[in-house]
Design a protein around this nucleic acid. Sequence first.
DNA 1: CATGAATGAGAGTTCATTCAT
DNA 2: AATGAATGAACTCTCATTCAT
Lengths: 192, 192, 192, 192
Amino acid sequence: MAMKDRIKERSIGLFERKGFSETSIQDIVEALNVTKGTFYYYYSSKEQLLMEIHKEYIDDLLQRQRRIIDSGGSQKDKLKSVIHLLISDIARNGDSGKVFFREMRHLTEDNATDIKKRREQFRHNIEEILRHGAESGEFRKQLRPDITALAVLGITNWTYQWFNAKGELTADELAEIYSSIVLDGIHTRNEE
Amino acid sequence: MAMKDRIKERSIGLFERKGFSETSIQDIVEALNVTKGTFYYYYSSKEQLLMEIHKEYIDDLLQRQRRIIDSGGSQKDKLKSVIHLLISDIARNGDSGKVFFREMRHLTEDNATDIKKRREQFRHNIEEILRHGAESGEFRKQLRPDITALAVLGITNWTYQWFNAKGELTADELAEIYSSIVLDGIHTRNEE
Amino acid sequence: MAMKDRIKERSIGLFERKGFSETSIQDIVEALNVTKGTFYYYYSSKEQLLMEIHKEYIDDLLQRQRRIIDSGGSQKDKLKSVIHLLISDIARNGDSGKVFFREMRHLTEDNATDIKKRREQFRHNIEEILRHGAESGEFRKQLRPDITALAVLGITNWTYQWFNAKGELTADELAEIYSSIVLDGIHTRNEE
Amino acid sequence: MAMKDRIKERSIGLFERKGFSETSIQDIVEALNVTKGTFYYYYSSKEQLLMEIHKEYIDDLLQRQRRIIDSGGSQKDKLKSVIHLLISDIARNGDSGKVFFREMRHLTEDNATDIKKRREQFRHNIEEILRHGAESGEFRKQLRPDITALAVLGITNWTYQWFNAKGELTADELAEIYSSIVLDGIHTRNEE
DNA sequence: CATGAATGAGAGTTCATTCAT
DNA sequence: AATGAATGAACTCTCATTCAT
């Protein structure tokens, strides 16, 4: 693998374990057995590295979300797929996600604005699924799509705080449970 | 107000705005127009201050949660009350919550373990509500209480990322919407 | 002497010998047997220290120049006194002057502008002496006061490049020679 | 133009604008759209480049000064020619001169000694003109030639600090004024 | 109670230079 | 003739903490 990617990969791991601020350039280069000069040959600053991690993560997510939305299928299926997308990403790509959700604060203003826009795009796309689903009669009409989208994101994103890909629960199972809660709630139904 | 509390209060505000690592003791004492010596007279270290913030926050939450659980009422009402407790706390006490959710990483191991235990207690109490509700037939039996508790915490805690107490939505309204989603889901029902 | 002044004094000596860029904070604090922290307790940056050196130097010079101008006496006497002021300052205060003339480049724009204004004030004051002297008939009318002022400054300031206060020539003697050259030139006169 | 000269030329421009220490090899090669390797193919170090700039400058000056001295003519004419030589060089060759006068400090000891010798030769040659002029009766006998030479150099070299080749004053005019001041002084004469 | 001088370790970053290709 | 990856030392600056007063 190229040095630039090796640096990124190790940094993600260290940022996840110790936090961005608590990880020094020294830590990163020592983990790779290279020198600080090497780091700065590939990245102009620690923040630029963080920015690249963020961009890669959110762009990948947006792209896969786009594919789901463009696919045929009911809005319910699309919503389930988006939930599955987010959860399964933890198993695939866990540390990146954790860094993404925790360390945005350390981007400079310009970069933060950039990333924020893409995050809002992701949220907005979920809102659209909910809105179309309400129009088509799949979803309850009285729930505000904006708040509901945030609820869905809350459930899934919080998973980054506790989910262990090697635990007894698979990402697929968890996505299934979340979908069930979001779609049907926890109340017993008349018909049950 | 006593100096010790003034220090804590200002620190919470600064930690929320800039982050724990990015806030220096200098920042804190300058904001209060005192000197570093004063800080160290009241707190033995920056981390000890963070620990006190955490303890105060979680203990207050646990105490109020306890009161809800000990009150009579259905499990459904208790769950709604806990959701309301968490959301309304943002309006009352927003910065503390944000610091609590973001900065636990900066506690030393011993302190982190201590706080983690209390957080798990809080989560466990929600699990119990869910478990009792399932036993009593209020809630669907096939949903795992542990995962469901984490879903509830996800929805509410994520709110700290975006909720603005001065926005168009009140904490009460938001708690109501969340309860509706959690209890009934977003699907349209037969009877509707 | 107070630490702040000790730092300044030593820094002037080091800047003179090695140059501003080539003198590190480490060099300064080692020469004083203190630590870097101490330096930054008194000066917020290396540049701020340089700025204080510059301000002190030029302000002192301007003040003494003012006294000369406000004294009675012919313009010729005033010019001679200003030349004497500049030369004698080297003996008194040599390193400061060398730093002042060499290191202005290292000030940030705002600070450089500030210092430049005061330097121009000094030059302007010489111009005024020359202008008044021309009006009163003491000095030749066909010489432009602005260029002549720069010539006077050239002669005197260049002295900082080579003059050694401990050499065979005293500052007073040198000032006398310079005055003679500037006033009468090097040509032989008819009457001689 | 050959790469080696292109590097030198650009470097002179950068050194003049930013200073020797503040100009990195990176800056130089970026300005030329080549890589660091190229730089080190032609120059063994940054200092060697500086040395070549110095040598070229002073050797050119010495050579032209020699031509003036070897020409017939009065000492007065020779002195005027040397003043003109120095001033006109600014217009032709401004950046080199500025670098020459400002950055000698950054030569290593051996190189500095070498350059110093040639500078002293230049100064010594002026001294000789003055000495011969005094002997022949052209110049006042009571002025020390060594100090007077330094005064002449002061006036001319200081010009590098402020002269703008594109300003209202030409180099020729300035040389004329300087010569007048040096030769005749600023005093009014009986005969005027 | 509170000050303020001083510490010392470590942070992010820069940069002249080397060298295999 | 030129590249570009890598080095390593040095740089400016920050900061939690200590302690005599």
